[in-house]
Amino acid sequence: MIEPRPDVRLEDAPMQPVDCPSCGAQVTARKSSWDQTTVQWTSPALAQCLERRRAVEESDRPNRRAFPGCPALREAVREAAVRGILDVQSGEPLKTNPAQEAHP
């Protein structure tokens, strides 16, 4: 059987580690821009996630019973990007609102 190929976009900019301060889960992430996010979990990280352990809200809809994602991790990935620990490939500055720009 042929091995799955790696994403060509990772050749020059691979996934980087990010830790969630909320539960300590270690994932790898990548941001091509401020609004794009890739997250690769492992099963130990998923087992550690506190949000994951919370029951997903009951639903009679077949696709709404799945874990939609961890808000704490989402924040952690963004924080890592803001602090420069996680690269943002587009090189664009972080969008700030005009009021903040006026008072640097």
């Binding site: 059987m1 799955p4 091509s32 821009s33 401020w34 609004d35 794009q36 996010t37 890739t38 997250v39 690769q40 979990w41 492992t42 099963s43 998923l46 994602g69």
Partner: peptide
Amino acid sequence: YVDADAVTPEMTDRFEFEIDTT
């Protein structure tokens, strides 16, 4: 497409990808 005992964690581990639609 592989035998059940040849399924690797990388095939089934959780993966998330959000596109920037700007």
